[in-house]
Every structure is written in C-alpha cells, then in structure tokens.
Amino acid sequence: MSERTGEHRHAITLTVNGVLREAAVPARRLLSDCLRHDLGLTGTHVGCEHGVCGACTVLLDGEPVRSCLTFAVTVDGHEITTVEGLAERGELSPVQRAFSECHGLQCGFCTPGFLCTVTAFLRDNRTPTDEEVLEAVSGNLCRCTGYQNIIKAVHRAAEIQAEESG
C-alpha cells in the first residue's frame, strides 16, 4: 500500500498498543487494512469484511469493535489495542496463556479476534458464568476448534487472572 493512487489522503494519528502512530490514508481505508498494511501490524486478521466472523476484532478505547467495519479516518486520535499489544512487558497475558494451555486455537486465524474480545470481557467481568462466557464469544467464528477449548480457555483465563491478582 506504499504506492500513491492519486486518492486524497487524510493524515491520522492513532495510539496503537500505547505507541503514537501516524498514517496518511484514503477515507475509505478500513481500520483493519490500516493496521495491517499501513502500520504493519498483521496480527489482526480479516476473515469476512462484513462484520460477521470477528477475526478482525480490536479494542477501540478499550472496547472490542470490528476493525473491518470501521474506517481508519473515523478513529483518528483514538486508542487501539491489537493482539500485538496484549502481552505486557513481554509477558503473555492470562488470556493468551489460557488459550495456549487449553488448546483453544488450531490454525490461529480467528484467535486474535477471540483474544481481544475475551480480554475486554474479563476486564469487565472477572468471575463470569458459563452463559456469560458463551455470550461473550458468541460473535466470533472459529472453523477449527468446535469452540470447546475456547470456552475452557476463557474460564481458565478468569482463573489465572484471579490467582494473579489475588
């Protein structure tokens, strides 16, 4: 996307994973493409580009949103957290560790969307019930795992979170 296409570009500034990033993007650039191709953060994946699969979910000012249904220019000045920003000071987050421990991923393509969604969910609800966990991940498609171990991983992440904050 380095090449000029003649389209008018908007200078935007995003705080991505705590780092101030600048980009010049056409108005129609989807946030997913901006993150992946303008900023080189390819951890956010694109599975459907119509908002159904959830693979592209990132945190916008802390709340999970579909980056394929958001224009980059719209979120100028806002904070974005992607999967690359979930580990703190090089240490995997409880959610990341739980997904690995519980075999909550196979091909890993949908995983960044799940991780971002679950991170925000467990921040707001530290002791979720089974139904709440199901509802929380109900907008993310996975074609590999049959969701069994993803559900398990969310509960495990809550457990790790509790252990480590307790």
Binding site: G54, T57, P64, V65, S138, G139
Partner: peptide, 9 residues
C-alpha cells in the same frame, strides 16, 4: 441485537 461487539459500535 446482533452480538455484543457489534453493539459496541
């Protein structure tokens, strides 16, 4: 309405 993440936006 849809899923929680859609409702955020």
């Amino acid at each position: 309405v849809a899923h929680p993440v859609i409702r955020n936006r």
